[in-house]
């Protein structure tokens, strides 16, 4: 699982470079994200523009990141499309993570 970090002020944009976040990869993804949160990155944009498949284990890992952040910050999702956007809609997690078309839009929503 390759994650690419870019800092924008106090917001960390994390782009997932793999095409899938599935049950095989979810534990590694979650560990890597929690490590960032525990280093103090509590305003995050998760860029899923390169991801074309997420299963419920991957989605559960994203939810657990939001729980780890808690009231200290926020996590926005950018670039979800196709099957990935559909999973957020089916599970109604799009009410929890509003889906932003671009990283720029997502940055506005998490800026402190």
């Amino acid at each position: 699982m390759t994650l690419n970090d870019t800092a924008h002020g106090d917001v960390l944009v994390v782009r997932v470079e793999d095409s899938r976040i599935d049950a095989a990869r979810a534990p590694e993804f979650k560990t890597a994200m929690i490590e960032r949160i525990d280093r103090g990155h509590v305003r995050l944009v998760l860029d899923l523009s390169k991801v074309d498949f997420v299963d419920s284990s991957g989605l559960g890992a994203i939810v657990s990141c939001l729980k780890r952040i808690g009231p200290r910050g926020n996590l926005a999702v950018a670039g979800a499309k196709g099957a990935v956007a559909k999973l957020f809609a089916l599970t109604r997690m799009d009410r929890v993570f509003p889906l932003h078309a671009s990283v720029d839009d997502a940055l506005k929503s998490v800026a402190g």
Partner: peptide, 13 residues
């Protein structure tokens, strides 16, 4: 947020 489901979604999906 604390009560959001993290699993148990498979069969419904």
């Amino acid at each position: 947020v604390a009560g959001l489901p993290e699993g148990g979604m498979g069969l419904t999906l």
